[in-house]
Simulated assay, not measured.
Amino acid sequence: MEVQQALDVTNHTITLYPSNWLYNAGVIGLLRILEELGDRVEEFIADDGTTKISTTKNVDEIFENWDKLSPKSKKNNSLVYGWKDAYYANQKEKSIKKRISAFLQQKENGRKVKKTASTFSCIFCTKRVKIKKTDARFLNQAFGNILLGSEKSFSNMYWNHSAKDFVCSRCEYVLMCHHLGLTRLQDGSEIFINAPSFKLMFNLNRFARGIFGVSSLKEGRDKREILAMSVIEYATKIQTTLGIWTGMNIEIVSKRGDKIEFFNLPYEVIQLLVDRRIASLLSQIGEFSILNLVLNQDFTRLMELGYLLLRIGLKPENERGKSDRAFVANYLKIKWNSKHTQHVAQLIFELYAAIEEKTKKNIYL
């Protein structure tokens, strides 16, 4: 099967194709920078999964906003560049601006390459580049000192005791934006929702950042719940369907220190969550206990819960026992819901019916 290159430059437009999660997070981070600068990045993101960047912003503008959006210490010093142990190790303003310039460059420079130069294939965009080995850049701590190794400090991380994963000049700056594609949660971890489409990734990560970001009032949630809620937000708020992309892998990448974990949802569950009727009902109910029954595909329990809540709701308030109140408190955390159990039960019945209709008809797109 032919591999689509992750980058193409034509007619002053830089076309980027989805690659692995680290590169994809870099593209989303780059789009955040350009959006902050006033570019209408939604117009860059195509329905075919690619993003076509056409910006008039210069190196200084992009660097300033990259720096502005990046985390700072209590003394307002950058945590990502400018010193030996920064996230992008040993990187200075000059080296970062050089990478930005290479990314924006419309044509490769015209320097002649000696016949003795080697040909390398970029690990991210697969572009083949003929270059002197001493000028080649490889995947190391310059692109993230927590995720990647150092040839001197962690030489056994690479085969033959040397970094061998070549990164072309156009992909270098994209990688140095990946920290801006991550969403920091209240528990200190960082997440990125990875998918086969930049349009999908841009919107899902925007929803996750808005709902569950560290500045959010939302309590910390399970990674699976965050992914589900982001998909529900997409299905209910974006006036377009997810189409063929729901048949492919959508996952959350979770980073805590140097530990990376991956979480995803079964294909069948994703198909339910992207159904607008089902997504709308889950959003109206707003209870994670109900959401988790759907995520676990425990639909029998969902129906039982509806009947129990209805039975309790039909009782006068003064006839509800301690066990009734405890049951409601266990499943319904939203105050309004706990006082209107009959209404919640009705929504649960509608949800169950919608799920039954979806699964019986086997309608996925």
Rank of each mutant, 00 (worst) to 15 (best):
M1H: 09
V3P: 01
V3M: 11
Q5W: 12
Q5S: 09
L7V: 13
T13Q: 13
T15W: 04
T15I: 11
L16W: 08
Y23T: 01
G26C: 03
G29C: 05
R32L: 06
I33V: 14
E35G: 14
E43L: 11
F44P: 09
F44L: 03
D47C: 03
D48F: 05
G49I: 04
I53F: 07
I62R: 05
N65C: 09
D67P: 01
K68D: 07
L69R: 09
P71D: 05
P71I: 00
N77D: 11
S78R: 07
S78N: 14
G82C: 06
D85C: 01
A86C: 13
Y87H: 12
Y88D: 00
Q91D: 14
I96H: 10
K98G: 08
R99W: 09
Q106G: 04
K107M: 11
R111E: 12
S121I: 10
C125H: 02
V129N: 12
K133S: 15
T134W: 00
D135A: 14
Q141A: 03
Q141C: 03
F143G: 00
I146H: 15
L148W: 01
K152Q: 05
K152L: 05
F154Q: 13
M157L: 14
V167M: 03
S169N: 13
R170A: 01
L182N: 02
T183P: 10
L185Q: 11
Q186C: 05
D187V: 04
G188C: 06
I191C: 05
A195F: 02
P196H: 05
L204F: 07
R206N: 10
R206E: 11
R209K: 14
R209I: 01
G210A: 15
G213D: 09
V214R: 09
L217T: 15
K218R: 13
D222H: 09
D222P: 01
K223G: 03
K223S: 10
T236S: 05
T240C: 10
L242C: 11
L242N: 07
G243N: 10
I244H: 10
W245T: 07
G247D: 12
N249G: 08
E251K: 15
G257N: 08
K259A: 04
F263A: 06
E268M: 02
Q271H: 07
Q271N: 07
Q271I: 00
D275N: 15
R277C: 03
Q284M: 09
Q284D: 12
G286M: 04
S289K: 15
S289C: 02
I290H: 06
L291C: 04
N292G: 03
N292K: 15
L293R: 13
V294W: 03
L295W: 02
L295P: 02
N296G: 11
D298W: 05
Y307H: 14
L308T: 13
L310Y: 11
L314Y: 14
L314S: 10
P316C: 05
E319S: 09
E319D: 08
R320W: 00
R320M: 02
G321Q: 08
Y331S: 04
I334Q: 14
I334A: 10
S338N: 12
K339R: 10
K339L: 14
H340F: 03
H343C: 07
V344H: 03
Q346S: 12
L347T: 00
Y352R: 14
T359D: 01
K361T: 02
N362Q: 15
